[in-house]
Design a protein around this nucleic acid. Structure first.
Lengths: 126, 126, 126, 126
DNA sequence: GTGGTCTAGACCACT
DNA sequence: GTGGTCTAGACCACG
């Protein structure tokens, strides 16, 4: 369910955070679902427990999960809402990226059709 | 002409590379133009010369500039072309970004109108 | 009567202790009143009996309750008095909190009016 | 300048965060000042570098500091402003604390005179 | 030299 | 069993 690219330049804990966000958005993890325990993920991915813990702590601080001592880590009911708001704040970044591509000679139509394609893929997979 | 954000998490040499690419794309630096010397940039930005050199070396290796011993660093005639190809290779990354926003509940129409807006801004500034 | 926030970072047994102290102070539990049994609270709150027991043991050790073998747990006659003394010992902590707020730019008058407001609320609810 | 209580129940990294916030508020560390390096603090306090790093990372994420790779960690210009806003958000917590003391039989006048005393101490030490 | 990431293995409190 | 904290020591990129 969760995979990690050890050779990537992106820190492992960062990859984990992104993966889990993605799983929450795609409803694989729903509100109040139990996340895999730190130790089990650590074994499964052959990654140090501390690294997993770092990712879990981040998710907890971001309000996406809540942890109960002795029980585990759970998806917060507001998780999807928070992710939605985060996405809105990323729009300027997205705009800067798009602008760079346009400046580099990529056609606006090409970008728009790419978005349409992604959107239809998305809808069909629901 | 060139500014650096010391508080950014992005490495200074990385910021420099991006800035110069941008200046090439916007024709501030044209083919065979002379880039500012390492020393002058170093003074102007209060940045270690080694850092400037690192950025220049990267640009040279990427084929965007060529250096002439004892003279300095010049914009390569193929620079814009290369940047265009680079941009094409970034399309998948752009797609992943867009996909994440769509998954987070951002509307496809919103993204497309943003692109249209950026494109018209761009055209009007030429 | 008693509620628990499972999403809180505060340990459940700690929340329980605070809740019961509060109920004693507000005279919902008076001297020699019978506290809910471990089993019933356990069911009612869907919490492990061990956790309830831990809280009860703490209250007992603090002299706020006394337990009668085979009968249950009862509010000690000195409970309110003890809580009053505990509160006095918390004054330095309160002072440190207040000091931090003052250092952060909160006005002393604002804090005092807040206290006045809370005090009048309290009196009117008696 | 910075001291840590190893026997406290409060995590070391938490104590560090509070200490540094305090030093920023009292202008011992001003905007753009250089914080002690992770390694030097680690030696000085006989605490593992990772623990220091955890505190520094937190401060950085909170916007109170910014770090420049290879140079060090610096106090953000907005630090005091942010701390002021944080304090405002802590007022409800402060109110709950005060309310508990009032419920426990502490006199409102006593709390207010404590605040006055702290405030005058504060003013005289400026 | 700096901060940032990671591993390995330990201890604690909570359930 | 769980999450959270800490130590010890390593490696990397940056300046």
């Amino acid at each position: 369910m969760i995979t990690i690219d050890l050779m990537s330049r992106k820190p492992i804990y960062d990859q984990l955070i992104e993966k889990i966000k993605q799983l929450i958005l795609s409803d694989v993890f729903s509100a109040n679902d139990h996340l895999p325990s730190v130790r089990s993920l650590s074994c499964q991915l052959s990654v140090n427990p501390n690294t997993i813990q770092k990712a879990y702590t981040h998710l907890c601080n971001a309000g996406l999960t809540y942890s109960v001592a002795g029980k585990g880590c759970f998806v917060s009911p507001q998780a999807k809402e928070i992710l939605g708001q985060d996405a809105k704040q990323e729009l300027p970044q997205f705009g800067a990226f798009a602008r760079r591509l346009l400046d580099s000679g990529i056609d606006a139509e090409q970008l728009k059709s790419l978005i349409d394609q992604l959107d239809s893929e998305r809808r069909s997979s629901l």
